[in-house]
């Protein structure tokens, strides 16, 4: 009976901890994470940044790489969390800015020593947008002029040979 009680109490304590922990967790940027990896190892942290590249699905989980401007960090997410992501950063898009709460690993034993974050909660802070990349007139004129010059040079060069 006593044993059961202890199990129940412990269970209660742990479940409250998992609820409270995110509140206690601190926001850490990628540079601090890399420089002071030992300090944050296996601790719950908050990390914010832009989703870049691909959402790579692996079974019921997915890898997402999130960049805070200095470095990109690998985030291991459940596919339900990963599905929240709409835009992934690249040349044409700025990706969603997300806030991940999860456990940081200096060298994750589960993932072959990767430095990663196992995300437990994901919030979309800001949706991504299409980057406005207008054709630059300056380059259009420049390329026309230079192409014309190149043709003249090629013609003269061929003739002289």
């Amino acid at each position: 009976m006593a044993k059961k009680l202890i199990v129940v109490i412990l269970g209660l304590v742990f479940s409250t901890l998992t609820f409270v922990a995110p509140v206690l967790a601190v926001t850490v940027d990628s540079v601090t994470m890399i420089e002071q990896a030992k300090e944050y190892d296996k601790k719950i942290i908050i990390y914010e940044g832009e989703v870049i590249g691909d959402v790579m699905r692996r079974g019921t989980f997915a890898w997402v790489n999130v960049s805070d401007g200095s470095n990109a960090m690998g985030i291991w997410l459940s596919i339900t969390d990963a599905a929240k992501i709409q835009y992934r950063g690249g040349y044409h898009y700025k990706g969603d800015t997300i806030r991940v709460t999860g456990v940081f690993h200096r060298a994750c034993p589960e993932h072959g020593g990767d430095m990663d974050i196992h995300g437990e909660r994901v919030e979309i802070l800001k949706l991504g947008v299409k980057r406005s990349i207008a054709l630059d007139n300056k380059y259009i004129y420049l390329s026309i002029i230079l192409s014309f010059l190149a043709c003249i040079f090629a013609y003269v060069g061929k003739k002289r040979q």
């Binding site: 054709l135 630059d136 380059y139 259009i140 420049l142 390329s143 230079l146 192409s147 010059l149 190149a150 040079f153 090629a154």
Partner: peptide, 13 residues
């Protein structure tokens, strides 16, 4: 595309 067009033209010149 334009950057490379300019690069190519400069190379030829």
């Amino acid at each position: 595309v334009l950057y490379f067009l300019i690069g190519l033209a400069v190379a030829v010149i």
